[in-house]
């Protein structure tokens, strides 16, 4: 069981939920939890959410994006309050994980709220005072949809390469990219395949599929590209 310690609005559609989980065994950046909600009539819905907080925080933070017709996310983003409890299983997954001892260089490519597990990796790097080459490319519909904006600006000043592309809407003075992720963009962000970066890609299934294909076409080793797809049963 997890107990909600705090909730913080991140964007108009996303919220961070900080949980106290008794007996939490600790996690590695990139892991997720399964949340199960049970209605009064016994109907159950289960969803996976990535952990946003780095290891060693004491609490567990999830950032949840609202899917309007979803069964679980509207409850988590709109109704949940401090003190509420719900059934939670985790930490889960040893494959899509990164620890500073895994080395780098590190290339993180996120689509929308696919940023969440990648942010846990960035936060872990910062907490460990690592100077490892790390670069982040985030694709979002509009700037308003970008999570953790202030923190990303801060880690950018601390040496994490942060790059953005907006695909739906952007301000007249927007200086970043305004198109789908493509090979030219990935080349510009780097590091080049010859440096054998560890690459983590997270986002909706078509986004991940597209980016993973581009990376392999550019010459990145498939075995060093790890993916996490949201899939169709979001919400």
């Amino acid at each position: 069981m997890g107990t909600v310690a705090d909730v913080q609005d991140e964007t108009p559609r996303a919220r961070t939920i900080v949980l106290e989980v008794p007996g939490w065994p600790g996690h590695v950046a990139g892991m997720h939890v399964d949340i199960r909600l049970t209605a009064e009539d016994g109907y159950q819905a289960q969803r996976s959410y990535s952990i946003a907080s780095p290891p060693g925080d004491g609490s567990v933070a999830l950032t949840v994006e609202r899917i309007d017709d979803g069964e679980v996310s509207p409850y988590l983003t709109d109704e949940l309050q401090a003190g509420d409890t719900f059934e939670l299983r985790g930490p889960i997954g040893g494959y899509f994980t990164w620890h500073v001892r895994d080395g780098g260089p590190l290339l993180l490519v996120g689509g929308g709220s696919g940023l969440v597990p990648l942010m846990a990796m960035v936060r872990h790097r910062q907490r460990e005072n690592s100077s490892l080459d790390a670069r982040l490319l985030l694709s979002a519909g509009s700037w308003e949809d970008v999570l953790y904006q202030d923190e990303l600006a801060e880690v950018s000043r601390q040496g994490v390469g942060t790059h953005y592309t907006l695909t739906r809407q952007w301000a007249a003075d927007w200086a970043g990219w305004t198109r789908r992720v493509d090979g030219e963009m990935l080349r510009a962000v780097g590091p080049p395949p010859a440096e054998r970066p560890l690459v983590y890609v997270c986002g909706p299934t078509p986004f991940v599929e597209h980016v993973a294909d581009l990376l392999v076409a550019l010459g990145h080793e498939a075995g060093r590209v790890r993916t996490e797809r949201f899939g169709p049963t979001g919400g």
Binding site: G93, T205, E228
Partner: peptide, 26 residues
């Protein structure tokens, strides 16, 4: 059916129920 699937990592919780251990790195 690329638009429909997720990764083995995404069902790690279910796999852990079956194998009683984390299996996604196997």
């Amino acid at each position: 059916a690329s638009g429909l699937h997720i990764d083995g990592n995404g069902v790690a919780g279910t796999l852990e129920e079956i194998f009683t251990t984390e299996i996604t790195v196997a």
